[in-house]
Design a protein around this nucleic acid. Structure first.
Length: 162
DNA sequence: GCCAACGTTGGC
DNA sequence: GCCAACGTTGGC
């Protein structure tokens, strides 16, 4: 790697793709595709890098929470679901020459001992400044190291799991 | 299921 | 390039 490891929060609705689903793919890589927001796309294409840490967040459920961590295993590359007319993420504006949308690959790392809920994040002084705590709808959000460490600690997993 | 907050679209 | 209308996200 040619730069320091960075940290991210990826949102997913569990009814669509859950941490359980990722855990079942333990030891394999999973494409993080279907992102159709430009700001999130820019992160995936330009800033998310192999080796970066990912907080896996479950949204749109009664108790939204960070439930575990994943790791990026491949830098951004074109999201072919945008080219597939049978995909629910199909975008007719996307072409092979100008794919518009990007994805990264991730792998399962570890489930938290306990979930870290949105309510908890909002009430924690260190975490209150996170985009998530401020109603941001962005599905790919940068997280700083202090926030990463704090959430891992609240989740009951140690420093060795970075 | 409601609906506020947010992002995007498109008329001008 | 503004901004109203519209569609979507996501907490509750």
């Amino acid at each position: 790697m040619d730069r320091e490891r960075r940290y991210w929060l990826f949102k997913s609705e569990p009814s669509c793709f859950s941490f359980d689903d990722l855990e079942k793919r333990h030891g394999q890589t999973e494409p993080w595709d279907g992102v159709r927001n430009y700001q999130a796309r820019n992160f995936l294409r330009d800033q998310v890098r192999e080796g970066d840490g990912v907080l896996f967040y479950h949204s749109n459920i009664p108790n939204p929470a960070v439930v575990g961590i994943a790791e990026v295993v491949r830098n951004g590359y074109p999201d072919s679901t945008a080219l597939d007319p049978d995909s629910e993420h199909f975008d007719p504006r996307s072409t092979p020459a100008d794919p518009i949308w990007y994805r990264v690959d991730v792998r399962y790392v570890r489930r938290f001992e306990r979930e870290v809920t949105l309510a908890e994040i909002r009430s924690n002084p260190t975490l209150g400044g996170m985009m998530l705590a401020r109603r941001s709808r962005l599905s790919i959000q940068p997280v700083d190291l202090e926030q990463w460490d704090t959430i891992l600690a609240l989740g009951g997993i140690g420093d060795n799991d970075h």
